[in-house]
């Protein structure tokens, strides 16, 4: 091959491809999915590599074939394809099937890596963290979510595209090796742990149904009548109040009746046990191929009925 005649893609060409790859899914369609977006992302490179109308038409046709993967994991595939197109434009014998083969070969496994990492772990964890800040009326919630997500995302898009471009054909082997598996496993460990943390904290379930009412013996109760009498007569002293607080801390009752709700009983058993059971039940339903929307509908029905009957509140 005549290296002198080979057109090289500059960093600015690759930056253009990187910027456009963010619009990969704009014309996502049920027939060939991300195909137009893929061609759109490749155009800055194709423009540079091919000058004649015939070559450009062939190149566009080649890149309008079916393509679909995780929108961020398309970046390393783009990188590899840029190298391939560079070689092809320089006269290397790379046919359409080879280009398509690389794309199809990489998109499946990569989607399998991207979905659990980005959609399954990073976004729920970041989203839940930001939501907890937002619910305490802190503006840091949306700001942290937006900045953290986009910094991670853009860094990933650019560096994985560069990795694909530099590594060229080797990348598929690297991905088949342990790295991606390690990354997915590590992310899943973190994700499962955080899910366990979130389940009891942010599922709001309360069972106000009263199970038992026990009257407290008078001797076990703080004598509020005596205190209000003393206050009315103007003889209430600091010592009296201190005694009251000490009595409360020592476990004396402040209500004439001890009311135990279903929620109190559950909390004694294990706090958060109801959200846990609900979540596990949902996992089981999903495994039985019940659609999430059906489950959500079911929860609404249960919520309304439970509220009307006074079991849930």
């Amino acid at each position: 091959m005549d290296e002198q005649n080979k057109v090289r893609l500059t960093k600015s060409d690759r930056l253009k491809v990187f910027w456009r790859s963010q619009f990969l899914q704009a014309s996502w369609n049920f027939e060939r999915m991300q195909n137009v977006g893929w061609a759109y992302s490749m155009i800055p490179a194709l423009k540079k590599l091919y000058a004649s109308k015939e070559d450009r038409a062939l190149a566009l046709k080649r890149h309008l074939e079916f393509f679909n993967t995780h929108p961020y994991l398309a970046a390393p595939v783009l990188g590899v394809t840029l190298t391939l197109e560079e070689e092809k434009a320089a006269g290397e014998d790379i046919d359409n099937a080879a280009v398509q083969g690389v794309k199809i070969g990489m998109m499946g496994p990569l989607a399998g890596v991207g979905d659990p990492i980005f959609w399954g772990t990073l976004r729920p964890v970041l989203g839940a963290f930001a939501a907890s800040l937002a619910l305490s009326e802190s503006w840091l919630g949306p700001i942290i979510f937006f900045l953290a997500w986009n910094i991670i995302r853009m860094a990933f898009l650019w560096y994985s595209q560069e990795l694909g471009y530099v590594q060229g054909g080797n990348i598929t082997q690297n991905l088949a090796g342990g790295l991606m598996q390690k990354l997915t496993q590590g992310a899943s460990v973190l994700g499962m742990f955080i899910m366990g943390v979130l389940v009891p904290r942010w599922t709001a379930m309360n069972f106000p149904m009263v199970i038992s009412r026990v009257e407290n013996a008078e001797a076990d109760m703080i004598d509020f009548a005596a205190i209000s009498e003393a206050a009315n007569e103007g003889v209430l002293s600091g010592d009296m109040l201190r005694t009251v607080v000490a009595d409360i801390q020592a476990g004396m009752a402040i209500q004439p009746e001890e009311v135990t709700t279903l929620q109190n009983t559950l909390d004694q058993l294990l706090p958060g046990v109801a959200p846990l059971l609900l979540t596990l039940f949902c996992v089981w339903l999903l495994r039985k191929k019940v659609s999430p929307i059906t489950i959500i509908g079911g929860i609404f029905v249960v919520g309304v009925i439970g509220y009307v009957l006074g079991i849930l509140g």
Binding site: T203, A204, T279, P292, G303, V304
Partner: peptide, 9 residues
Amino acid sequence: VAGGMIVAV
């Protein structure tokens, strides 16, 4: 009430 539980899904 249901809104608080839907997170579980």
